[in-house]
Design a protein around this nucleic acid. Sequence first.
RNA 1: CGGGGCAUAGCGCAGCCUGGUAGCGCGUCUGCUUUGGGAGCAGAAGGUCGGGGGUUCGAAUCCCUCUGCCCCGACCA
Length: 570
Amino acid sequence: MRLSSLPIATQKEAPADAEVISHQLMLRAGMIRKLAAGIYSWLPLGLRVVRKIETIVREEMDRTGALELLLPSVQPGALWHQSGRWDLYGPELLRFTDRHKRDFCYGPTHEEVITDIARRELRSYKQLPVTFYQVQTKFRDEIRPRFGVMRSREFIMKDAYSFHIDEPSLDQTYQVMYDAYTRIFERTGLRFRAVEADSGAIGGAVSHEFHVLADSGEDAIAFADDGDYAANVELAPAAPPAQVQTGSGAAMEKVATPGAESIAAVSESLGLAPRQCVKTLFVCAADEGPPVALVLRGDHELNAVKTVKLPGVAEPLRMAGPKQVQSATGAAPGSVGPVGLSGPVYVDHAAAALADFACGANEDGFHLVNVNWERDLPRPQSVDIRNVLAGEPAPDGHGTLSIARGIEVGHIFKLGTKYSAALGATVLDDSGASIAMPMGCYGIGVTRIAAAAIEQNHDSAGIIWPQAIAPYQIMIIPLNQAKSDAVREKSEQLYARLADNGYEVMLDDRDVRPGVKFADCELLGIPVRVVIGDRGIKNGTLEVRGRRDSDNENIAPDELDNYLERKLAG
RNA sequence: CGGGGCAUAGCGCAGCCUGGUAGCGCGUCUGCUUUGGGAGCAGAAGGUCGGGGGUUCGAAUCCCUCUGCCCCGACCA
């Protein structure tokens, strides 16, 4: 590709509303343009990256024997009524009606459609197991699209669905997909981690997420450095403390703590470590009853996914309003505690293991100190409702947990028979019995991977593409080509030769100053750049540099192929 | 959806408070010079100041309203 024929200009400044680095760089590099909130056009360079990712995904899916198909993006509401999700999915489902006033939606996912295919086509256990996949544009009407293409409303996703005669077969395919996903992300050249995950709204029991590791990731993942354990923090169980504290015998006492309404302020005002304080949060009850109290150690964070599974807690999880807290405790949220509460109370294991702790007195401006379970208030049932922290032992007993940020780019589920039962997707087994097929569901966010790759791989000059998904592999930069025939000829020759040899190569034949070419080459993140100048021609050398290198290398022209092979390896 | 904010040239912004000529940087176009890290000089194009309504002799500026967008929270590949 000749840069002189690419009409998309790079930009020095990113639009003010681009918040994360991948969004800024994708805009500046001319990969994408915004059409509406959460809806983006893919320009030539961006599309090439998307296609590279899709190709890797397709090759690895095909290798497992999965069959590609293409399902409609527009789906009839009737199908969603059958699965029950028309009412359950919520406003994220983009709904509309056609001219006959029939309900339709733009597919956010394709369980219904694929299950409809399955119930029509699959009759016998002899056809199983089978896995179908597609690469399709999806639409989810996110409440708040942001971060460019990373959390857009319209996006490209690879989704696969497997059908089985029994659970062991599902287990087997699940593992095959797990391995395929591992190969896919290895091939992209990104640092990633597979973790155990909550299966959320899609349903089902077992699931794993694949995360691209990046500090800007929206998810926290916990993993053992020196073991195999890895899970989304949402899911990772926090073990009860090994030891329970014993009290000093000091009597419970009410202390004035004017203005201290946060753990930090209370701990400061009382001269107690946050871990010796207790915080009490109130969430809405499932049955419109009094709010549910949740008691946590001061230095711990509430885990919403764990909490919402507790009996009596409203789903989705909602914090109780100040008025509800006031009527449940007689105090404002900053001064509440578990002592003397009449409503439902859950206490985290760690908080339950404390003795002589501090908590709100349920009287504005006062806290209690030297509080002890059993003596000062009944010892309630203790549960796991907090996020694990780095440094804690892994739940499987092997190693110590670290916490890292991740961007979720893949998610695999065992769905079970949720959809096949609802939609009547059954086959006959070898005894002639009708069986609702257990299903698996496996997604990869194709467009999100492009953004995640940038979040993980960039520097102050721009993008640093892993070579496997770079839009082009090599940039040839001729210097002073307007004046130097030698430079022009050498560049053209090299461009033709590398292209003939199967490389994806760009030639910056624009009549601009060298600094502009260097800067654009770095912004675009092309893995290898080759500079052609009179200096090198005179010395009989080629100047090469990898995008991550800090210095140029001068090599003999006939070493170039070796150099490229090495630089662009796997 | 709740809370906060923004909307002026392709991009980044000033002007608004205190009403009267629409401006700066980058980018774009022309010419000359320059050519190893986002060049210099000279010139030029480009705006219904988000839409509608109102107040006023006069509105980018004040008021009302609509729309779009962004940020903070609960959801997801």
